[in-house]
Design a protein around this nucleic acid. Structure first.
Lengths: 183, 183
DNA sequence: GCCACCATGTAACACGTTACATGATTTG
DNA sequence: CAAATCATGTAACGTGTTACATGGTGGC
């Protein structure tokens, strides 16, 4: 998914500035789709505007640069919906954590411990984010469904980490002992 | 994770050619870490060799270009292990499927149905891949642990899709009906 | 007969990130 | 008082993809 489509997707849920789009895409609910930085978002928004898929209104502010609030147009909405109808790309899961886990026997137990803690913290944070807006105004059928999907996945992940984390540390400890004994 | 590290990671599990590395990274067990294409793998391997982190031996073949089999060196192994000890990046999950689900109320039921089927097929395929090598020679403690982690996650995903898939289709159908009634 | 698989490699191209430029306000 | 947050934007840079070039073998 390109930054262009990402902007359209976020704007289809409401007006936003480039700054806000970046936040949503790196931390917020839209981080499941793609994340992007300022350097790609601002040019993308400018192009969307010249293509007539979004409109801008400037809101001057004292001290700060004027906020440029973008709104999606009918044409933008149509392009967005059409893009969703095209054959979807595969979901991907990229896990630096699993690479560490895979090599547990070659790493110091301390590294494994840290990696587990970090991953648990991440999952907790994602769960917090998902349950947070459960009582908010942002409730429509699609978002309820996806939220519950996310919660189900994260809960299992967390349970697995908590139940089997010690076993992973043990792998590292055992092989460290064997190395020490061989010397 | 760069293609360079990816190559090192795969080679730390055994010798391979550039062609094989691409397969492992796009389809095989290493697709959880990153995937890369020929255009990035071949240059990366050449650089790794000139840096002394891998060695090559050519195996001539009739008709085809000679296979260039790469092996990791001690220096390569050290760099790989060290890279795993550095603070890990966060795991990421990118889901074109969830974007479709989120917008279920704006899409034709047929699109939702297709998206669900496609996602289910993907999860089935991942489960097949994970359970496949359960009885194989590729069994060491780290890979057992990560495999079981993967299986646990995929099973929940699949169960959720099977239990709640109909509800998602219903969201699309209901809103399509409302649109029709309004006309 | 055509397509997929094996097998390597290069060059043009697209895309996105990082760092820079600017600067007020709030929070610890 | 320093750091984070809000707020926009550009330019250099890095990295990776796509398409091309080449060509034999085996399955449908």
């Amino acid at each position: 998914m390109s930054v262009r489509s990402l902007c359209l997707a976020i704007l289809s849920f409401g007006d936003a500035t480039g700054y806000e789009i970046r936040k949503e895409s790196t931390e917020g609910r839209f981080s499941y789709f793609d994340d992007a930085s300022f350097g790609s978002i601002y040019p993308a928004l400018a192009r969307l505007e010249s293509d007539g898929l979004v409109t801008v209104r400037e809101e001057p502010q004292a001290g700060k640069p004027a906020r440029k609030v973008y709104s999606i147009t009918e044409a933008g909405r149509t392009e967005f919906i059409n893009s969703l109808c095209e054959p979807q790309a595969a979901d991907t899961f990229k896990s630096p954590f699993l690479l560490i886990a895979l090599n547990a026997a070659q790493l110091p137990p301390e590294v494994i411990r840290r990696a587990l803690e970090r991953r648990k913290a991440q999952v907790h944070e994602e769960l917090r984010l998902l349950t947070e807006c459960e009582n908010e105004e942002c409730r429509h059928p699609g978002s309820d469904w996806t939220r519950n999907y996310g919660i189900a996945c994260m809960n299992v992940t967390l349970a697995y980490l908590e139940e089997h984390g010690e076993a992973l540390i043990k792998i590292a400890e055992d092989s460290a002992e064997q190395l020490a004994a061989a010397e």
